[in-house]
Design a protein around this nucleic acid. Structure first.
Length: 553
RNA sequence: UGUCCGAUAGUGUAAUUGGCAACACGACAGUCUCUGGAUCUGUAGACUCUAGGUUCGAACCCUAGUCGGACAACCA
């Protein structure tokens, strides 16, 4: 069976067939180290590294670090960690645009010498207003016709630090009347007396992204520069630089960025959520960041599979977060060990079970994977079950415990509920009294009688308390950014996106380690949080299991 | 009133490049089950944005239009 090609791979296969670049495929993932990577970047990472792997090519990791005022090593470290965690390897090809500053400076000198760039003394405001609008042409800078010698001298003096921030810029001399705004004498270099996280104080002028990105790709001999749609309008400019400079020409191909409903994806907004304390840091499990998803319990495989499933195209798209959730479930279903945990405990006393007796019952660790073996679960007279698993006046289709009904305790016994003890004042159900059938040990009866439901439980005596963090969507609105003029999108924040509860878990979980993943049977998938310690376990709910009974209501 | 890009079931992506519109998720129904999970089976759901044209034949090519998106940072 041949898998259909996305449009980028179709282009690449055509290029290979035509022996373009000696049929070489070389991509790159070029983040700016000014924030943490999110699921949208994951799409790009999977695309770039995945494409290289598919065509026996290479993929570089390159930091586009041309703006020292926003960038930081904290981000370059986290980006490397996240790309690695996703399962990709850039080998020895980790680069920085700042590695090329000298070369890029020379490119600028070349342009000046060719009369294609000039130093402009206008202020930012003047340049802005002279640029015109998309429908009106701009006007030319009065400095546009400085001589090559003067430009060369001024540009060298900019580099030497003779001028203050903002008083001069280097601009390309292209066409102030171009219908493409990016061709209206774009700024190439600006003065920034700011220490760079890598080059220190070596430079006080820095190239703009537009003057660095394409050339960086060119220097690295990138064959296919895959980027998002908003850079489509920049492509003529990159091509202009390549042509004027006479350097290797990468081919830029643009694709539509990922959008997820109930989620914001812009770095600016994510930063804001962090800075305003609306979430607990970049790796808050509610964040769509890669580190957030990791802490939430997502696996790299599930994210890669998600990227594969959503495909690549040019039209705008909004993916349902439910698809992302489906991808984790699918992966965790195969891998996660099953255990029992009771989130909202209801005490059950089994009246006819001997006092002080404890049994070790066999439980299968993963019915999807025999090799994961089995374990022992202690059982005794007093147990906890889920509050939801009991109903005093149960509807016909309710298969769990109710007065007079018999259910199976998973891997244990059949029990029947005899009486309900309630708080006299509030009517709240405090405990249940049941009897068990000793012949049903292990969960099946010798007489072959069927029970409607199977519920999970934890023996009270050996139960371990654990903090469980239940996460919900960060936003209540499907499109949180769709707000009326002047309204802050944060009004759409979900006030109940995090609920911390104390649960009882089976003792097996006692020694569980950071990032270990479990399925709490009948509830969902959970992982050990980094806040977890020996004396106080903390679990994050990655995603719930489907519950069709609840859904139908 | 500019330039560039896009438009296919609810959502996303395909369609051997001009030859019966398919797959996944979701929905619904059923099967199975010691997890109301998973599995398995099935059903519904699309005048392929509109109108013309080319053609034996158009989702695909052409023309015009409609709608949507991107672009006016010394950000990337």
């Amino acid at each position: 069976m041949k898998t259909p090609l996305n449009f980028i791979h179709a282009i690449i296969e055509e290029d290979i067939k035509n022996n373009k670049n000696e049929s070489r495929v070389h991509t790159r993932f070029p983040p700016e180290p000014n924030g943490y990577l999110h699921i949208g970047h994951a799409k790009s990472i999977c695309l770039n590294f995945g494409t290289a792997a598919k065509y026996n090519g290479l993929c570089n990791l390159r930091f586009d670090d041309t703006n020292p005022v926003k960038e930081d090593v904290e981000y370059v470290d986290s980006i490397q960690e996240d790309v690695k965690w996703l399962g990709f390897d850039w080998g020895d090809r980790m680069y920085y645009a700042s590695d090329y500053f000298e070369q890029i400076f020379q490119y600028a000198v070349d342009l000046i010498k060719k009369g294609k760039a000039y130093v402009c003394d206008m202020t930012a405001e003047e340049i802005g207003s002279n640029r015109g609008t998309p429908t009106k042409p701009g006007t030319e800078s009065p400095y546009r016709n400085r001589t090559v010698e003067e430009n060369l001298d001024l540009f060298q003096r900019m580099r030497a630090g003779e001028f203050a921030d903002g008083v001069k810029v280097l601009r390309a001399k292209i066409d102030m009347a171009s219908p493409n705004m990016h061709m209206r004498d774009p700024i190439l270099y600006r003065i920034l007396h700011t220490e760079h996280h890598r080059t220190g104080n070596q430079w006080c002028i820095y190239p703009m992204y537009d003057f660095a990105h394409g050339q960086s790709d060119s220097i690295e001999k990138i064959t296919h520069s895959i980027c998002t749609l908003e850079f489509e309008v920049h492509r003529p400019l990159y091509d202009w630089f390549v042509k004027e400079l006479g350097i290797f020409a990468p081919q830029q191909i643009e694709f539509a960025r990922l959008n997820l409903n109930y989620t914001v994806m812009s770095k600016r907004k994510l930063l804001q959520l962090v800075q305003e304390g609306l979430v607990n840091g970049w790796d808050d499990p509610r964040m769509p960041t890669i580190c957030g998803l990791r802490r939430r319990g997502f696996t790299p495989e599930s994210i890669r599979n998600f990227a594969e499933t959503i495909g690549v195209a040019k039209r705008d798209n909004v993916i349902d977060v439910a698809l992302l959730e489906h991808c984790v479930r699918e992966d965790l279903n195969k891998k996660a060990m099953r255990v029992m945990a009771v989130l909202r405990p209801l005490k059950v006393v089994i009246d006819n079970y001997p006092e002080n007796q404890t049994e070790e019952l066999d439980a299968i660790n993963n019915p999807e994977d025999e090799t994961m073996g089995s374990r022992k679960v202690p059982f005794s007279k007093v147990i906890y079950i889920e509050k939801d698993d009991f109903m005093e006046d149960a509807p016909k289709k309710y298969f769990r415990l109710s007065p007079g009904a018999e259910v199976r305790l998973r891997y244990a016994y059949y029990i029947t509920c005899n009486s309900v003890i309630k708080d006299e004042n509030t009517g709240e159900i405090l405990e249940l009294h049941c009897t068990y059938d000793p012949a049903t040990k292990g969960g099946s009866s010798p007489d072959g009688r069927k029970v409607q439901g199977t519920i999970h439980w934890v023996a009270a005596e050996t139960a371990v308390e654990a903090e469980v963090r239940l996460y919900d969507r960060l936003f209540v609105n499907e499109f949180p950014e769709n707000v009326e003029e002047g309204v802050d999108y944060k009004v759409n924040l979900n006030n109940n996106s995090l609920e911390k509860i104390t649960a009882f878990v089976e003792p097996f979980l006692m020694g569980s380690k950071l990032d270990q993943k479990f399925q709490f049977e009948r509830i969902g998938y959970f992982c050990v949080d980094k806040d977890s310690v020996e004396s106080k376990l903390v679990f994050n709910r990655t995603v719930s299991l489907r519950d069709s009974w609840n859904k139908n209501k």
